[in-house]
Design a protein around this nucleic acid. Structure first.
Lengths: 176, 176
DNA sequence: TACTACGTTTAGTAAATACTAAACGTAGTA
DNA sequence: TACTACGTTTAGTATTTACTAAACGTAGTA
């Protein structure tokens, strides 16, 4: 017996929901993206409600978040008050957008706080015992430079005009 | 007025807690790692309780999780029943360990589910309308190949014997 | 002006998560 | 054997998060 389209879509939606949750996004976001990704034409908010099983409020919130990440695009039609959404199909583009988004917000703040600790140490703060001081300085410095490397990596990727199979392939060769 | 060591450490601990939470780990894990990272000598569970402010239970759980990720190392001393922990200082090593860990668990399961959807589609499931069928096939295939690229990337990194500044630098040059 | 068809916001809720406090298990020691 | 000093497990709790249901605001239309 062969699975019907409806069931197949449902499985796909659940798969993407899981992936979404895994990466720290609401499950609903994954589900909505999945629905849009499997739709040949843009869908209205009400159609999303219908196909995702979420309520209007949740769809409104989640689809807006998706749009902010550049994973979906909103469009309108003349003489039609509805908004329509469609999925971005260039995933590499999306990765860049997500990295860019993530860079601001809390991550940056936390990393900045480590940087500040370092600055204070370098300015001579906390000098109780010279040996301990040197130790702290060395450790915090090492962490800071690691963060800097990560940060360069992320911002390099998000600044990229094109990132695709080719780039990934090249990187894979280096890592080999 | 210059900040004292205690305050400095506290700020650092809070910073790492935030970073931990940002990446989807418990805040306590970040805090414990921070405490260990700033300690010149291995610490016992009770010392961790004292310095982190968490309870024994929480420390026990979180420090074990850190050990599983390879972010801290457990050791014992002769004629001493206590366990001692110290921080891993090679962050690149830790990144590999974390990626390896993450690859199993839920992420893999979710990705596998997408793969399965593709298999079913290729086997001819869900064939209501030929045009729709072709469309679905194309989309799911594209997503699948993207996941495969990601997966290769992650496992290449986690298989790496050495990953450090050098490698990151090389990659940055390519991305430039 | 009132009406309708939208999207958004809000107040409340259910579920997940990481914690605390305390019971528990266990291995060494007298 | 009982006692002590550990780490672990468990039961309960507080907090966060993403959701639902419904009120709300608003722009077009008669």
């Amino acid at each position: 017996m062969t699975t019907d389209t409806q069931t197949l879509k449902q499985e796909f939606i659940e798969g993407l929901s899981g992936i979404s949750a895994f990466w720290g996004f609401p499950k609903g976001m994954g589900a909505l993206f999945a629905v849009l990704y499997l739709s040949p034409n843009p869908l209205s908010l009400d159609e999303l409600v219908e196909q995702s099983g979420l309520t209007k409020g949740a769809v409104s919130t989640n689809v807006r978040a998706l749009a902010r990440l550049g994973l979906v695009h909103r469009s309108t039609r003349l003489g039609d008050r509805k908004d329509y959404y469609e999925a971005e199909t260039d995933f590499y583009k999306s990765v860049r957008a997500i990295l860019k988004e993530r860079q601001n917000t809390e991550f940056d703040r936390a990393v900045a706080s480590v940087k500040e600790t370092l600055s204070k140490l370098e300015a001579g703060a906390g000098s109780s015992d010279p040996a301990e001081q040197a130790f702290l300085l060395e450790r915090v410095r090492a962490l800071q430079s690691f963060f800097e490397a990560l940060d360069s990596l992320f911002s390099a990727i998000s600044r990229l005009d094109s990132l695709g199979f080719g780039t990934v392939q090249t990187i894979l060769n280096i890592l080999k």
